[in-house]
Design a protein around this nucleic acid. Structure first.
Lengths: 218, 218
DNA sequence: CAGGAAAAGTGACTTTGTCACTGACTCTGA
DNA sequence: TCAGAGTCAGTGACAAAGTCACTTTTCCTG
Protein backbone atom coordinates (compact mmCIF):
# COMPACT_ATOMS: atom_id res chain seq x y z
CA UNK A 1 0.00 0.00 0.00
CA UNK A 2 1.62 3.28 -1.06
CA UNK A 3 1.89 5.96 1.59
CA UNK A 4 0.40 9.40 1.00
CA UNK A 5 3.95 10.68 0.68
CA UNK A 6 4.72 8.28 -2.12
CA UNK A 7 1.56 9.24 -3.91
CA UNK A 8 2.40 12.93 -3.68
CA UNK A 9 5.77 12.12 -5.17
CA UNK A 10 4.12 10.47 -8.12
CA UNK A 11 1.36 13.03 -8.53
CA UNK A 12 2.66 16.28 -7.06
CA UNK A 13 -0.38 18.24 -8.17
CA UNK A 14 -2.66 16.28 -5.88
CA UNK A 15 -2.61 18.57 -2.90
CA UNK A 16 -3.07 21.76 -4.89
CA UNK A 17 -6.18 20.53 -6.61
CA UNK A 18 -8.47 19.74 -3.75
CA UNK A 19 -8.11 16.11 -4.73
CA UNK A 20 -5.99 15.40 -1.67
CA UNK A 21 -8.92 13.73 0.04
CA UNK A 22 -8.76 10.87 -2.44
CA UNK A 23 -5.22 9.93 -1.55
CA UNK A 24 -6.43 7.70 1.23
CA UNK A 25 -8.82 5.66 -0.85
CA UNK A 26 -6.74 3.35 -2.97
CA UNK A 27 -8.44 0.78 -5.19
CA UNK A 28 -6.71 -2.48 -5.97
CA UNK A 29 -7.15 -4.53 -9.11
CA UNK A 30 -5.47 -7.91 -9.46
CA UNK A 31 -3.25 -8.93 -12.38
CA UNK A 32 -5.14 -10.41 -15.27
CA UNK A 33 -8.28 -8.41 -14.64
CA UNK A 34 -9.70 -6.30 -17.39
CA UNK A 35 -9.69 -2.68 -16.30
CA UNK A 36 -11.59 -1.36 -19.30
CA UNK A 37 -13.27 -2.84 -22.29
CA UNK A 38 -13.60 -1.23 -25.67
CA UNK A 39 -16.70 0.92 -25.62
CA UNK A 40 -16.89 1.40 -21.85
CA UNK A 41 -17.64 4.75 -20.26
CA UNK A 42 -15.66 5.51 -17.15
CA UNK A 43 -17.08 7.06 -14.03
CA UNK A 44 -13.64 7.52 -12.53
CA UNK A 45 -10.25 8.70 -13.65
CA UNK A 46 -7.53 6.37 -12.42
CA UNK A 47 -4.13 7.56 -11.26
CA UNK A 48 -1.85 4.57 -11.07
CA UNK A 49 0.24 4.34 -7.91
CA UNK A 50 1.52 0.81 -8.28
CA UNK A 51 1.55 -1.99 -10.83
CA UNK A 52 0.97 -1.68 -14.54
CA UNK A 53 -1.79 -1.61 -17.11
CA UNK A 54 -1.46 -2.91 -20.63
CA UNK A 55 -3.59 -1.14 -23.22
CA UNK A 56 -4.40 -3.33 -26.14
CA UNK A 57 -6.20 -3.09 -29.45
CA UNK A 58 -7.74 -6.23 -30.89
CA UNK A 59 -8.28 -6.77 -34.60
CA UNK A 60 -11.28 -8.74 -35.83
CA UNK A 61 -9.01 -11.69 -36.55
CA UNK A 62 -8.37 -11.88 -32.80
CA UNK A 63 -4.82 -10.72 -33.21
CA UNK A 64 -3.77 -8.13 -30.66
CA UNK A 65 -1.26 -5.37 -30.38
CA UNK A 66 -0.07 -3.60 -27.26
CA UNK A 67 -0.56 0.14 -27.72
CA UNK A 68 1.24 1.19 -24.57
CA UNK A 69 1.56 0.52 -20.89
CA UNK A 70 0.50 2.68 -17.98
CA UNK A 71 2.98 2.79 -15.14
CA UNK A 72 2.98 4.33 -11.64
CA UNK A 73 2.79 8.11 -11.80
CA UNK A 74 0.77 7.95 -14.99
CA UNK A 75 -2.80 8.00 -16.02
CA UNK A 76 -4.35 6.44 -19.07
CA UNK A 77 -4.91 9.07 -21.75
CA UNK A 78 -7.51 7.00 -23.44
CA UNK A 79 -9.49 7.29 -20.26
CA UNK A 80 -8.76 11.00 -19.95
CA UNK A 81 -9.74 11.51 -23.53
CA UNK A 82 -12.85 9.40 -23.12
CA UNK A 83 -13.87 11.28 -19.98
CA UNK A 84 -13.09 14.76 -21.26
CA UNK A 85 -15.12 14.37 -24.39
CA UNK A 86 -17.74 11.83 -23.44
CA UNK A 87 -16.75 9.21 -25.98
CA UNK A 88 -16.51 5.49 -25.25
CA UNK A 89 -13.15 4.02 -24.38
CA UNK A 90 -11.52 3.00 -27.68
CA UNK A 91 -9.45 -0.01 -26.58
CA UNK A 92 -9.03 -2.64 -23.89
CA UNK A 93 -6.93 -2.25 -20.75
CA UNK A 94 -5.65 -5.31 -18.94
CA UNK A 95 -3.94 -5.33 -15.56
CA UNK A 96 -0.43 -6.62 -16.07
CA UNK A 97 0.86 -6.41 -12.51
CA UNK A 98 -1.45 -5.91 -9.52
CA UNK A 99 -2.57 -2.32 -9.68
CA UNK A 100 -3.22 0.14 -6.89
CA UNK A 101 -4.86 3.26 -8.16
CA UNK A 102 -6.51 6.39 -6.90
CA UNK A 103 -9.91 6.73 -8.46
CA UNK A 104 -11.29 10.20 -8.84
CA UNK A 105 -14.93 10.53 -9.87
CA UNK A 106 -15.38 12.07 -13.27
CA UNK A 107 -17.30 15.12 -12.08
CA UNK A 108 -14.71 15.87 -9.47
CA UNK A 109 -11.98 15.50 -12.04
CA UNK A 110 -13.67 17.84 -14.48
CA UNK A 111 -14.06 20.42 -11.77
CA UNK A 112 -10.42 20.16 -10.75
CA UNK A 113 -9.15 20.42 -14.27
CA UNK A 114 -10.94 23.71 -14.67
CA UNK A 115 -9.37 25.00 -11.51
CA UNK A 116 -5.84 23.72 -11.51
CA UNK A 117 -3.23 24.51 -14.06
CA UNK A 118 -1.00 21.85 -12.52
CA UNK A 119 -3.54 19.19 -13.27
CA UNK A 120 -3.98 20.55 -16.79
CA UNK A 121 -0.27 20.42 -17.37
CA UNK A 122 -0.25 16.84 -16.18
CA UNK A 123 -2.99 16.04 -18.65
CA UNK A 124 -1.27 17.81 -21.54
CA UNK A 125 1.94 16.05 -20.71
CA UNK A 126 0.17 12.69 -20.70
CA UNK A 127 -1.38 13.39 -24.08
CA UNK A 128 1.89 14.52 -25.58
CA UNK A 129 3.79 11.53 -24.32
CA UNK A 130 1.30 9.01 -25.60
CA UNK A 131 0.79 10.68 -28.92
CA UNK A 132 4.51 10.69 -29.58
CA UNK A 133 4.61 7.06 -28.50
CA UNK A 134 1.74 6.06 -30.75
CA UNK A 135 3.30 7.80 -33.69
CA UNK A 136 6.51 5.90 -33.32
CA UNK A 137 4.43 2.77 -32.93
CA UNK A 138 2.77 3.47 -36.26
CA UNK A 139 6.17 3.98 -37.80
CA UNK A 140 7.40 0.71 -36.31
CA UNK A 141 4.45 -1.32 -37.42
CA UNK A 142 4.37 0.18 -40.89
CA UNK A 143 8.08 0.19 -41.69
CA UNK A 144 10.23 -1.92 -39.43
CA UNK A 145 11.04 -5.51 -40.02
CA UNK A 146 9.78 -8.03 -37.58
CA UNK A 147 13.20 -9.40 -36.66
CA UNK A 148 14.37 -5.92 -35.73
CA UNK A 149 11.30 -5.30 -33.60
CA UNK A 150 11.75 -8.63 -31.89
CA UNK A 151 15.40 -7.99 -31.11
CA UNK A 152 14.59 -4.54 -29.79
CA UNK A 153 12.04 -6.09 -27.48
CA UNK A 154 14.47 -8.75 -26.31
CA UNK A 155 17.19 -6.23 -25.58
CA UNK A 156 14.92 -3.73 -23.88
CA UNK A 157 13.43 -6.28 -21.51
CA UNK A 158 16.65 -7.92 -20.45
CA UNK A 159 20.05 -6.75 -19.25
CA UNK A 160 23.52 -8.25 -19.09
CA UNK A 161 22.83 -9.10 -15.44
CA UNK A 162 19.34 -10.41 -16.06
CA UNK A 163 19.50 -12.01 -19.50
CA UNK A 164 16.38 -14.13 -19.10
CA UNK A 165 13.03 -13.09 -20.45
CA UNK A 166 10.06 -15.02 -19.13
CA UNK A 167 7.54 -14.70 -21.90
CA UNK A 168 5.92 -17.24 -24.15
CA UNK A 169 6.20 -16.83 -27.90
CA UNK A 170 2.48 -16.20 -27.91
CA UNK A 171 2.88 -13.29 -25.48
CA UNK A 172 5.71 -11.73 -27.47
CA UNK A 173 3.64 -12.04 -30.62
CA UNK A 174 0.74 -10.21 -28.97
CA UNK A 175 3.04 -7.40 -27.86
CA UNK A 176 4.32 -6.94 -31.36
CA UNK A 177 1.00 -7.48 -33.08
CA UNK A 178 2.07 -10.48 -35.10
CA UNK A 179 1.44 -14.24 -35.10
CA UNK A 180 3.02 -16.75 -32.76
CA UNK A 181 4.51 -18.80 -35.59
CA UNK A 182 6.42 -15.78 -36.83
CA UNK A 183 8.04 -15.23 -33.45
CA UNK A 184 8.84 -18.92 -33.13
CA UNK A 185 10.56 -18.90 -36.51
CA UNK A 186 12.57 -15.78 -35.80
CA UNK A 187 13.62 -16.97 -32.36
CA UNK A 188 14.62 -20.29 -33.85
CA UNK A 189 16.88 -18.46 -36.29
CA UNK A 190 18.44 -16.49 -33.45
CA UNK A 191 18.97 -19.69 -31.51
CA UNK A 192 20.58 -21.29 -34.54
CA UNK A 193 23.00 -18.37 -34.69
CA UNK A 194 23.79 -18.93 -30.99
CA UNK A 195 22.44 -15.54 -29.99
CA UNK A 196 19.72 -16.79 -27.65
CA UNK A 197 18.74 -19.96 -25.87
CA UNK A 198 15.14 -21.11 -25.84
CA UNK A 199 13.16 -22.96 -23.23
CA UNK A 200 9.48 -23.33 -22.54
CA UNK A 201 8.19 -19.87 -21.66
CA UNK A 202 11.67 -18.40 -21.55
CA UNK A 203 14.22 -16.74 -23.80
CA UNK A 204 17.80 -16.31 -22.60
CA UNK A 205 20.08 -13.85 -24.32
CA UNK A 206 23.54 -15.36 -24.68
CA UNK A 207 25.10 -12.83 -27.03
CA UNK A 208 23.83 -9.29 -26.57
CA UNK A 209 26.42 -7.74 -28.86
CA UNK A 210 25.57 -10.18 -31.58
CA UNK A 211 21.91 -9.21 -31.35
CA UNK A 212 22.77 -5.55 -31.27
CA UNK A 213 24.83 -5.95 -34.41
CA UNK A 214 21.80 -7.10 -36.38
CA UNK A 215 19.98 -3.82 -35.77
CA UNK A 216 20.33 -1.18 -38.50
CA UNK A 217 23.35 1.00 -37.76
CA UNK A 218 22.19 4.04 -35.70
CA UNK B 1 -10.35 34.86 -48.09
CA UNK B 2 -12.72 33.67 -45.35
CA UNK B 3 -14.85 36.33 -43.70
CA UNK B 4 -14.78 36.85 -39.94
CA UNK B 5 -18.23 35.32 -39.85
CA UNK B 6 -17.05 32.13 -41.50
CA UNK B 7 -14.17 31.92 -39.11
CA UNK B 8 -16.43 32.26 -36.12
CA UNK B 9 -18.52 29.47 -37.52
CA UNK B 10 -15.50 27.22 -37.68
CA UNK B 11 -14.03 28.30 -34.36
CA UNK B 12 -16.92 29.54 -32.22
CA UNK B 13 -14.73 30.01 -29.15
CA UNK B 14 -12.71 32.73 -30.81
CA UNK B 15 -14.61 35.74 -29.57
CA UNK B 16 -14.85 34.52 -25.99
CA UNK B 17 -11.16 34.02 -25.63
CA UNK B 18 -9.78 37.40 -26.38
CA UNK B 19 -8.34 35.90 -29.53
CA UNK B 20 -10.85 37.76 -31.69
CA UNK B 21 -8.22 40.25 -32.74
CA UNK B 22 -6.41 37.56 -34.70
CA UNK B 23 -9.35 36.85 -36.95
CA UNK B 24 -8.31 39.53 -39.35
CA UNK B 25 -4.80 38.33 -39.84
CA UNK B 26 -4.96 35.28 -42.04
CA UNK B 27 -1.78 33.61 -43.21
CA UNK B 28 -1.70 31.78 -46.52
CA UNK B 29 0.49 28.82 -47.36
CA UNK B 30 0.52 27.40 -50.87
CA UNK B 31 -0.05 23.73 -51.71
CA UNK B 32 3.08 21.65 -51.66
CA UNK B 33 4.78 23.74 -49.00
CA UNK B 34 6.04 22.10 -45.89
CA UNK B 35 4.24 23.59 -42.89
CA UNK B 36 6.31 21.79 -40.26
CA UNK B 37 9.29 19.55 -40.25
CA UNK B 38 9.99 16.82 -37.76
CA UNK B 39 11.77 18.40 -34.79
CA UNK B 40 10.55 21.96 -35.36
CA UNK B 41 9.35 24.15 -32.52
CA UNK B 42 6.35 26.29 -33.33
CA UNK B 43 5.95 29.89 -32.33
CA UNK B 44 2.35 29.92 -33.45
CA UNK B 45 -0.68 27.71 -33.17
CA UNK B 46 -2.47 27.41 -36.47
CA UNK B 47 -6.25 27.28 -36.80
CA UNK B 48 -7.08 26.13 -40.30
CA UNK B 49 -9.79 28.14 -42.05
CA UNK B 50 -9.35 26.84 -45.55
CA UNK B 51 -7.44 24.14 -47.41
CA UNK B 52 -5.88 21.03 -45.94
CA UNK B 53 -2.73 19.82 -44.27
CA UNK B 54 -1.36 16.33 -44.57
CA UNK B 55 0.58 15.06 -41.57
CA UNK B 56 3.09 12.45 -42.50
CA UNK B 57 5.60 10.20 -40.79
CA UNK B 58 8.66 9.12 -42.75
CA UNK B 59 10.51 5.91 -42.06
CA UNK B 60 14.28 5.73 -42.53
CA UNK B 61 13.73 3.78 -45.73
CA UNK B 62 12.09 6.89 -47.16
CA UNK B 63 8.70 5.27 -47.16
CA UNK B 64 5.96 7.49 -45.83
CA UNK B 65 2.59 7.08 -44.22
CA UNK B 66 -0.14 9.67 -43.84
CA UNK B 67 -1.09 9.93 -40.17
CA UNK B 68 -4.06 12.21 -40.66
CA UNK B 69 -5.25 15.34 -42.39
CA UNK B 70 -6.13 18.68 -40.88
CA UNK B 71 -9.22 20.30 -42.36
CA UNK B 72 -10.94 23.67 -41.91
CA UNK B 73 -12.24 24.09 -38.37
CA UNK B 74 -9.43 21.99 -37.00
CA UNK B 75 -6.04 22.48 -35.52
CA UNK B 76 -3.13 20.13 -35.60
CA UNK B 77 -2.86 18.28 -32.32
CA UNK B 78 0.76 17.51 -32.89
CA UNK B 79 1.33 21.22 -32.86
CA UNK B 80 -0.89 21.73 -29.81
CA UNK B 81 0.90 18.93 -28.06
CA UNK B 82 4.27 20.28 -29.08
CA UNK B 83 3.41 23.77 -27.90
CA UNK B 84 1.76 22.76 -24.65
CA UNK B 85 4.63 20.69 -23.48
CA UNK B 86 7.61 22.23 -25.20
CA UNK B 87 8.62 19.19 -27.21
CA UNK B 88 9.70 19.26 -30.86
CA UNK B 89 7.11 18.52 -33.50
CA UNK B 90 7.16 14.75 -34.05
CA UNK B 91 6.23 14.50 -37.75
CA UNK B 92 6.07 16.43 -41.00
CA UNK B 93 3.11 18.49 -42.18
CA UNK B 94 2.66 19.22 -45.86
CA UNK B 95 0.12 21.58 -47.36
CA UNK B 96 -2.21 19.55 -49.53
CA UNK B 97 -4.55 22.30 -50.72
CA UNK B 98 -3.72 25.99 -50.36
CA UNK B 99 -4.14 26.77 -46.70
CA UNK B 100 -5.47 29.88 -45.02
CA UNK B 101 -4.89 29.81 -41.31
CA UNK B 102 -5.13 32.02 -38.30
CA UNK B 103 -1.85 32.02 -36.48
CA UNK B 104 -1.93 32.68 -32.76
CA UNK B 105 1.39 33.25 -31.02
CA UNK B 106 2.25 30.54 -28.54
CA UNK B 107 2.30 32.81 -25.49
CA UNK B 108 -1.06 34.23 -26.36
CA UNK B 109 -2.45 30.76 -26.87
CA UNK B 110 -1.16 29.53 -23.54
CA UNK B 111 -2.71 32.48 -21.81
CA UNK B 112 -6.06 31.91 -23.48
CA UNK B 113 -6.13 28.26 -22.71
CA UNK B 114 -5.79 29.04 -19.04
CA UNK B 115 -8.65 31.46 -19.23
CA UNK B 116 -11.17 29.87 -21.53
CA UNK B 117 -12.91 26.62 -20.95
CA UNK B 118 -14.25 26.76 -24.49
CA UNK B 119 -10.77 26.74 -25.89
CA UNK B 120 -9.82 23.92 -23.56
CA UNK B 121 -12.76 21.88 -24.73
CA UNK B 122 -11.74 22.50 -28.29
CA UNK B 123 -8.27 21.24 -27.46
CA UNK B 124 -9.52 18.16 -25.61
CA UNK B 125 -11.84 17.41 -28.49
CA UNK B 126 -8.98 17.66 -30.96
CA UNK B 127 -6.85 15.32 -28.91
CA UNK B 128 -9.64 12.80 -28.52
CA UNK B 129 -10.48 12.79 -32.19
CA UNK B 130 -6.91 12.30 -33.32
CA UNK B 131 -6.10 9.70 -30.75
CA UNK B 132 -9.09 7.63 -31.76
CA UNK B 133 -8.07 8.08 -35.37
CA UNK B 134 -4.48 7.05 -34.76
CA UNK B 135 -5.58 4.00 -32.87
CA UNK B 136 -7.69 2.81 -35.72
CA UNK B 137 -4.77 3.56 -38.01
CA UNK B 138 -2.56 1.30 -35.90
CA UNK B 139 -5.19 -1.38 -36.11
CA UNK B 140 -5.40 -0.95 -39.88
CA UNK B 141 -1.68 -1.05 -40.45
CA UNK B 142 -1.12 -3.95 -38.12
CA UNK B 143 -4.04 -6.16 -39.11
CA UNK B 144 -5.74 -5.26 -42.33
CA UNK B 145 -4.84 -6.61 -45.70
CA UNK B 146 -3.50 -4.21 -48.23
CA UNK B 147 -6.15 -4.92 -50.84
CA UNK B 148 -8.87 -4.08 -48.34
CA UNK B 149 -7.17 -0.85 -47.36
CA UNK B 150 -6.75 0.08 -51.00
CA UNK B 151 -10.39 -0.58 -51.82
CA UNK B 152 -11.51 1.39 -48.78
CA UNK B 153 -9.43 4.29 -50.00
CA UNK B 154 -10.81 4.04 -53.51
CA UNK B 155 -14.40 3.96 -52.32
CA UNK B 156 -14.00 6.73 -49.76
CA UNK B 157 -12.46 9.14 -52.24
CA UNK B 158 -14.90 8.61 -55.06
CA UNK B 159 -18.66 8.49 -55.41
CA UNK B 160 -21.08 7.05 -57.93
CA UNK B 161 -21.33 10.52 -59.47
CA UNK B 162 -17.60 11.17 -59.36
CA UNK B 163 -15.98 7.78 -59.95
CA UNK B 164 -12.58 9.10 -60.97
CA UNK B 165 -9.70 9.35 -58.56
CA UNK B 166 -6.81 11.47 -59.72
CA UNK B 167 -3.88 10.04 -57.85
CA UNK B 168 -0.75 8.30 -59.03
CA UNK B 169 0.05 4.84 -57.72
CA UNK B 170 2.98 6.42 -55.94
CA UNK B 171 0.70 8.82 -54.09
CA UNK B 172 -1.74 6.11 -53.06
CA UNK B 173 1.16 4.04 -51.81
CA UNK B 174 2.37 6.93 -49.66
CA UNK B 175 -1.08 7.39 -48.17
CA UNK B 176 -1.26 3.76 -47.20
CA UNK B 177 2.35 3.44 -46.13
CA UNK B 178 3.31 0.81 -48.65
CA UNK B 179 5.36 0.56 -51.83
CA UNK B 180 4.28 1.72 -55.26
CA UNK B 181 4.74 -1.71 -56.83
CA UNK B 182 2.28 -3.21 -54.39
CA UNK B 183 -0.40 -0.71 -55.34
CA UNK B 184 0.30 -1.19 -59.04
CA UNK B 185 -0.08 -4.93 -58.68
CA UNK B 186 -3.29 -4.73 -56.67
CA UNK B 187 -4.82 -2.18 -59.04
CA UNK B 188 -3.85 -4.37 -61.95
CA UNK B 189 -5.77 -7.23 -60.37
CA UNK B 190 -8.81 -5.02 -59.86
CA UNK B 191 -8.58 -3.90 -63.47
CA UNK B 192 -8.35 -7.50 -64.60
CA UNK B 193 -11.56 -8.23 -62.69
CA UNK B 194 -13.20 -5.27 -64.47
CA UNK B 195 -13.73 -3.37 -61.24
CA UNK B 196 -11.64 -0.32 -62.12
CA UNK B 197 -10.08 1.27 -65.17
CA UNK B 198 -6.55 2.57 -65.05
CA UNK B 199 -4.95 5.50 -66.79
CA UNK B 200 -1.85 7.54 -66.13
CA UNK B 201 -2.45 9.32 -62.83
CA UNK B 202 -6.04 8.22 -62.64
CA UNK B 203 -8.19 5.37 -61.35
CA UNK B 204 -11.81 5.08 -62.45
CA UNK B 205 -14.22 2.93 -60.49
CA UNK B 206 -16.44 1.04 -62.89
CA UNK B 207 -18.07 -1.39 -60.47
CA UNK B 208 -18.54 0.00 -56.97
CA UNK B 209 -20.66 -2.90 -55.78
CA UNK B 210 -18.08 -5.34 -56.99
CA UNK B 211 -15.40 -3.55 -54.99
CA UNK B 212 -17.63 -3.35 -51.95
CA UNK B 213 -18.25 -7.06 -52.14
CA UNK B 214 -14.56 -7.80 -51.66
CA UNK B 215 -14.51 -6.10 -48.26
CA UNK B 216 -15.02 -8.37 -45.24
CA UNK B 217 -18.73 -8.56 -44.44
CA UNK B 218 -19.55 -5.87 -41.79
C1' DC C 1 9.25 16.31 -82.65
C1' DA C 2 13.19 14.93 -79.72
C1' DG C 3 14.52 14.03 -75.32
C1' DG C 4 13.82 13.83 -70.61
C1' DA C 5 11.00 13.18 -66.64
C1' DA C 6 7.30 11.07 -64.46
C1' DA C 7 4.37 7.09 -64.11
C1' DA C 8 3.53 2.46 -64.48
C1' DG C 9 4.81 -2.49 -65.41
C1' DT C 10 7.62 -6.79 -64.53
C1' DG C 11 10.01 -10.71 -62.62
C1' DA C 12 12.72 -12.69 -59.16
C1' DC C 13 13.29 -13.00 -54.60
C1' DT C 14 12.64 -12.26 -49.37
C1' DT C 15 9.85 -11.58 -45.48
C1' DT C 16 5.66 -12.00 -43.12
C1' DG C 17 1.13 -13.97 -42.24
C1' DT C 18 -2.03 -18.03 -42.29
C1' DC C 19 -3.54 -22.73 -41.87
C1' DA C 20 -3.57 -27.09 -40.23
C1' DC C 21 -1.32 -29.85 -38.07
C1' DT C 22 2.09 -32.56 -34.69
C1' DG C 23 4.90 -33.04 -30.82
C1' DA C 24 6.62 -31.85 -26.22
C1' DC C 25 6.15 -30.31 -21.60
C1' DT C 26 3.74 -29.70 -17.14
C1' DC C 27 0.28 -29.99 -13.87
C1' DT C 28 -3.36 -32.04 -11.33
C1' DG C 29 -6.11 -35.29 -9.33
C1' DA C 30 -7.53 -40.12 -9.10
C1' DT D 1 2.47 -42.45 -10.18
C1' DC D 2 0.64 -41.94 -14.27
C1' DA D 3 -3.23 -40.42 -17.44
C1' DG D 4 -5.26 -37.10 -19.54
C1' DA D 5 -5.83 -32.09 -20.44
C1' DG D 6 -3.93 -27.94 -21.18
C1' DT D 7 -0.39 -25.02 -22.69
C1' DC D 8 3.54 -24.11 -25.48
C1' DA D 9 6.39 -24.74 -29.36
C1' DG D 10 7.75 -26.61 -34.08
C1' DT D 11 6.73 -27.52 -39.05
C1' DG D 12 5.60 -27.35 -43.94
C1' DA D 13 2.99 -25.46 -47.49
C1' DC D 14 1.18 -21.69 -49.30
C1' DA D 15 -0.55 -16.71 -49.87
C1' DA D 16 0.25 -11.85 -49.29
C1' DA D 17 3.32 -8.04 -49.07
C1' DG D 18 7.75 -5.70 -49.51
C1' DT D 19 12.21 -5.07 -52.12
C1' DC D 20 15.26 -4.66 -56.02
C1' DA D 21 16.56 -3.77 -60.37
C1' DC D 22 15.28 -3.02 -64.11
C1' DT D 23 12.07 -1.78 -68.71
C1' DT D 24 8.34 0.39 -70.98
C1' DT D 25 4.88 3.85 -71.61
C1' DT D 26 3.19 8.51 -71.39
C1' DC D 27 3.37 13.15 -71.25
C1' DC D 28 5.23 17.44 -71.52
C1' DT D 29 8.32 21.17 -73.09
C1' DG D 30 11.72 23.56 -75.41
Amino acid sequence: MPTPGEILNLFPFFDETGLGSFIGSVTKIPAGACAFMEGDYSIHVAFIAKGALRVVKTGESGREIVLYKVLPGESCILQLSSVLSGVGYPATAIVEHDVEAIMVPVERFKQSINESQFLRNFVYGSFTKRIAWMMSLIEEVAFKRMDVRLIELLLSRTSPEQPELNMTHERIALELGTAREVISRLLKNLEHDALVELARGKVTIINRNGLDAILPDR
